[in-house]
Amino acid sequence: MLKYLPLGDKAFLVKIGNGISPETHIKVQNFSKLLEEKKLKGIIEVTPAYNEILISYDPGVLNYKKLISELRELEKEKINLYAELKRIIHIPVCYEAEYAPDLEMVASLNDISINEVVKIHASNEYLVYMLGFTPGFCYLGGMNEKIATPRKETPRTSIEAGSVGIAGKQTGIYPIDSPGGWQIIGKTPLKLFNPKSEPHFFIEPGCYLKFYRISKIEFESIKMQVEQNSFAIKIEAKNE
């Protein structure tokens, strides 16, 4: 049985597991997708995280007790909606010095070459556990610890959207211009967040990201295509 915990009088949490793991993640995504598909009356929004799902609801439509009992029924359904999410999205990244002010630092702190850092960074498939923090920011799992690097002691006041960074054992992409302390090792010309046109976000929790190296010339060319909405992002099904 799942655990239900109120978060005020208009939201509650469904607690699925106790830690961060791909297994818990699959359960979280399965139940979230099921709730999205069922479109239960009274539920406004479903926000999955690592091991919990936040459900925003309108108590004027359906009260907490009734909602929970409906969800308890749904728990019994054996479903695997997760399979649909499993795809790899290929993210072009330019790792050249102009866009990678901290790449040398990451290499020297880990005692490997710049080339190796890039090779390692671009070889793994990263699971998108969830999105949050800023619009379009992905919490990624699966970075090789050989390139783990502590955050910068003094955060930068502004990091441009698209910058790819490392903080501790995590890697991520800044979706909007924001201050931050991540070690910046590259930049993608893709826009993770498009407020003006749909889809507003092309990355969903549950999919995988894989980075591939592009040159500065390719960066400029893709950037232009992105602005003209003509760039086709490479997406493939993920096989086990």
Partner: peptide, 10 residues
């Protein structure tokens, strides 16, 4: 905590 959802007034 393990990062998770928050609501208005949390």
């Amino acid at each position: 905590i393990i990062s998770s959802g928050i609501a208005f007034g949390t």
